[in-house]
């Protein structure tokens, strides 16, 4: 399963980059993320609670930032395991400045699931993935632009 998209953010590339590298922001914006703990440089342990179709459950996940090219982009590698099965996902985020105080963010992702979540949730998976991703960027946008206003 895969997908891609883009959004425009009303902030400078440097500001967007800073936010996207901030584990607190990431934890805030990932739906169902209970905790994000740095375990080594660029690698976090997270606890994710996600419901896909009838399969709700917790995943112990590692989230790794690789190919970090400040401030242009990075790749996010997620591996989660839990009672509902496992999730392997990769997302590539790419930033380009479009105008003064405006940044274009493009993303693409691939995801694979296994175990119960694949057996029961497969039909819903595309939709759920889209929901999770769009929710993430919606929150990121809000996080970035809200702060812009208050700043």
């Amino acid at each position: 399963m895969n997908g891609n998209g883009s959004i425009e953010l009303n902030a400078s590339i440097e500001h967007v980059w800073k936010k996207l590298m901030d584990p607190e922001v990431l934890a805030e914006c990932i739906m169902g993320c209970k905790q994000l703990v740095l375990i080594e440089e660029g690698k976090y342990r997270a606890e994710l609670a996600v419901g896909i179709a009838a399969v709700k459950g917790k995943y112990d996940a590692t989230i790794e930032l690789v190919d970090v090219q400040a401030p242009k982009g990075y790749k996010l590698v997620v591996h989660g395991e839990g009672a509902p099965g496992f999730v392997d996902a990769e997302g590539v985020i790419h930033l380009t400045p479009v105008a003064e105080g405006k940044t274009n963010l493009t993303y693409s992702y691939t995801a694979e699931v296994g175990g119960k979540v694949a057996a029961i949730g497969q039909r819903m998976l595309g939709g759920v993935a889209k929901l999770l991703i769009s929710d993430f960027f919606k929150k990121v946008k809000k996080e970035i632009e809200n702060e812009q206003k208050t700043a």
């Binding site: 699931v113 175990g115 694949a118 057996a119 029961i120 497969q122």
Partner: peptide, 14 residues
């Protein structure tokens, strides 16, 4: 099953 061996029909919905 998908080609990776994941089982896809785990409920009476599928």
């Amino acid at each position: 099953y998908d080609s990776n061996g994941q089982f896809l029909t785990g409920s009476f919905m599928d």
